[in-house]
Design a protein around this nucleic acid. Structure first.
Lengths: 243, 243
DNA sequence: TAGTGGTCTAGACCACATC
DNA sequence: ATGTGGTCTAGACCACTAA
């Protein structure tokens, strides 16, 4: 009848996958929790275990779920020791990867600038939070971040709460605000340090810095964080894998 | 008996996968060619179709093979129109992604510097090829690459041959030298343009540039290309996806 | 019409974690 | 001993391509 443009066919396991994402997004199973066994889910949806398995396979590959043989399938979380810094690709030239010191400079509420509103799919003038912070290694600042969050799901977030929380920032977002980061895109450039970033990173004005603009998404590809970072790459590098 | 340190268990489909990689590496099926059907492979290896399928699934996910419903499974290739610039992550701020003009500056044979020999796992002093080239958009140079290749599999490669070949460089490597690039790692930094790169990219000395050091691997994680690139990110950005 | 990969099922057994 | 995910099998049927 209609113009016949859409995908018109969706295999069963993708429909099951969509139902699982619904349950994740709706909070039926929270980050870190155990979800029902494949057998239980198969019974619940009225399909075979193999079909549920294929749906979970894809969700595990997309890092929404984590399988552990003999234990079960868990909702992935940023609040874990082993998967820490999942999105931070900056590696030190020498020494182990982890362990940078966080310092929060400020956290303000304001009206979204046009550019920020566009990226976060807000109306121009909607309320947003702006956070500035640094990451340091061995006392030397390496990363200067400016973070923009929509005010509505993150109401009540302050610099103090950020500073008090031990563990990755995205872990706090999960546990305190129910916002889980799934996927992000980064646009990377080389820029000269302006006065502000030069001061914060303790480098001369004009020093080449890596500019990293990250847009993070939660379920259903909804953007929920815009992050502009300046990285001092004199003793670190941004690592990427091509496949 | 022994100290029992190795993986000690390998599922059937991974053994099949290893056999398939052997055949790919050995040249039984060349890039772009059709491989036998899953049924044929199952018969050949004495396993069920499902087991072969799982092996092929992983190889397809790693971009070694390409499945096409109704047609069969093909060996992936860089010499294709649709998958062009698979490894180049530089995107223009405006306009479509593809279509940059290549220019080869030189191609010399020399002894490997220590750093290059280490990266390519050669003996110090082994013979290597050094290539310089640029990529331009709308006549303006954007990328300056210095490429290092081991001389032995790439014997006979000249700037002329590079310039005459239409299509991506890795396509030429496949068809002319039988070397297929599978996977690469990049280390990215912000640096100031030195005199040479400034001249080639037509920017002032000291301009911040993206420094991209890429190590490319063929089958069995063997490194076969070291590429140091300088990107002018005034009208382009390096795009990355985090998952 | 024939052949390919893609989906779905049902059942058996293995590896692993927990009790 | 039990329950979980992981592997392997065999067979049926669907979607797609090409001749």
């Amino acid at each position: 009848m209609a113009a016949a443009s859409g995908p018109a066919f969706s295999p069963l396991y993708r429909q099951i996958k969509a139902l699982l994402v619904q349950s994740l997004n709706g909070g039926e199973w929270k980050p870190g929790e155990l979800i029902p066994s494949e057998q239980d889910l198969a019974a619940r949806f009225g399909v075979s275990q193999g079909t549920v398995r294929k749906a979970i396979d894809e969700l595990a590959m997309e890092n929404l779920l984590m399988r552990r043989q003999g234990r079960g399938t868990f909702v992935a979380t940023h609040a874990e020791q082993n998967i820490q810094y999942r999105f931070l690709r900056l590696m030190p030239d020498k020494g182990p990867a982890g362990g940078m010191e966080r310092r929060f400079i400020d956290c303000r509420r304001m009206r979204a600038p046009a550019e920020v509103a566009r990226a976060l799919e807000l109306k121009p003038g909607d309320s947003v939070l702006q956070i500035h912070r640094t990451l340091s290694r061995d006392g030397r600042p390496v990363v200067f971040d400016e973070i923009w969050l929509p005010a509505v799901p993150f109401k009540g977030l302050t610099a103090d709460r950020l500073a008090q929380y031990a563990g990755p920032m995205y872990g706090l977002f999960e546990t305190e605000f129910g916002v889980r980061m799934i996927r992000a895109e980064e646009k990377i450039r080389a820029v000269a340090a302006d006065e502000w970033s030069a001061q914060v990173l303790q480098v001369p004005v004009g020093t080449p810095l890596l500019s990293v603009a990250r847009l993070s998404h939660t379920y259903h590809d909804k953007p929920v964080e815009l992050r502009r970072g300046w990285y001092d790459t004199s003793a670190h590098y941004y690592r990427n894998e091509l496949n």
